[in-house]
Design a protein around this nucleic acid. Structure first.
Lengths: 170, 170
DNA sequence: TAAGATTGAGCAATCAATCTTC
DNA sequence: GAAGATTGATTGCTCAATCTTA
C-alpha cells in the first residue's frame, strides 16, 4: 500500500475538530455548556495521550496500572479498582493485556488464598518508566497553558462536582 | 433468581468509589492531579447519566444524536461527527442503534447522492423529548452545586485546555 | 483527488453473573 | 453471607480501509 494513500486515509478518518470556543448551540444554558466542554476535553485528551503512548506500544489504561504498581509495589486487583474507582471487570481486562505482553505477573497472595498480587516483570518496570515519562510530559504540555492558581481552581471545582456525583451514586 | 441474590450481585459489582478529595498519591504534582480529577469526573458523570437514561431504554451517545437532530432538523452523519468532534465510525454506530430501534431514518440527500440525511421518526421525536428532560435535570442536579461564576470559570478554563488540545492534534 | 458513508478490528468501560475462599 | 477474582454480553470510542459519488 503506497504511503500517499495511507496519508489520505488518515485524513479521511481524522476526527473533525475545528471547534474553537463555543459549540453548536448558543442557546444552551451554562449547565449544558459546562457539561459539553468537560466531555469534549476528556475525549480530546484521551486521543492525544493514546496516540503518544501507542508509539511505545502502550495504552493509557495499561500505563495507569503499570505506573501505580511501580509506585506502590504489588497490589491486588481490587486495590486498583478502588483507586481508579472502576468496575472490577475493567481492571481484570487491563491486567490480562499486560500479562499477555509479559509486563506483569499474577502471584498468589500468601495471606489470602482468594487474592492475587499483581507485580511488574523486568520488562514491565522498564515500560513503567517510559510510560511515566510520556505521561508527565503529556500533562505538562496540556496543562502548562494554565498557571498554578488556575490548575488549583480546576482541582477545587471539579472535586466538588466529584463529591456531588458520589452522592448521586457515581 | 431470588431478588436478594440480585441485590448482592449489584453490590459485588459496584464501582468502588469512596474517594472524597485527593486520590492515592500525595506526591503527584498538580499537573497529574488535575488530570486525574478530570478523568474521574468524566467517568463518574457518565455512569450517573447512563443509569438515568437506561431507565428509559436510552444511552447518552444515542440521546445526543436524537436531541441534536430534534433541535437542528435533518442532518448528515458528517455534520454530527463534526459537532461532536468524534470519529465518523462512532456516529455511524450510534445511528445504527437508533435506526434499529426505529427512532431515526436515513433518507437520501437529494442534493448530494453520496450523503444521507438523518431524520427523527415520531417515536424518535418523543424519545428526544424524554431524553432532553432527563439530561437537563441531570446537569442541574450535578452542576447545581456550583454557582454561576464557578460554572463560568470552568467553561473558560476548560475551553483554554481544549484549544491547546486542538493545537496538539486532538 | 477528495468528501460522505460504511465496515472491520481492537480497546476500555459498564452491568450482571459465577466460582472460590474468608 | 461477603469479599476477591474472573467471565459473558454490550456499548462507545478510535484507527484503518473501502466503496460510491462530487
Amino acid at each position: 500500500v503506497p504511503e500517499s494513500h495511507k496519508a489520505a486515509c488518515r485524513k479521511a478518518n481524522a476526527v473533525a475538530s475545528p471547534l474553537i470556543v463555543v459549540p453548536q448551540d448558543e442557546n444552551a444554558s451554562d449547565f449544558e455548556q459546562v457539561s459539553e466542554v468537560l466531555r469534549d476535553f476528556y475525549l480530546r485528551s484521551l486521543r492525544v495521550i493514546e496516540r503518544t503512548l501507542a508509539s511505545s506500544g502502550m495504552s493509557a489504561a495499561r500505563a495507569r496500572v503499570l505506573m501505580t504498581v511501580a509506585k506502590l509495589g504489588p497490589l491486588r486487583s481490587t486495590d486498583l479498582a478502588t483507586m481508579f474507582s472502576q468496575a472490577p471487570r475493567t481492571v481484570t481486562e487491563a491486567i490480562d493485556g499486560l500479562e499477555r505482553e509479559k509486563l506483569v505477573r499474577r502471584d498468589p497472595d500468601p495471606e489470602d488464598r482468594r487474592a492475587k498480587k499483581i507485580s511488574l516483570t523486568d520488562d514491565g518496570a522498564k515500560m513503567a518508566e517510559v510510560a511515566d515519562a510520556l505521561f508527565r510530559s503529556h500533562v505538562r504540555r496540556v496543562f502548562g497553558v494554565l498557571d498554578d492558581d488556575e490548575r488549583g481552581d480546576i482541582i477545587r471545582l471539579i472535586n466538588r462536582l466529584n463529591e456531588r456525583l458520589v452522592e448521586l451514586g457515581g
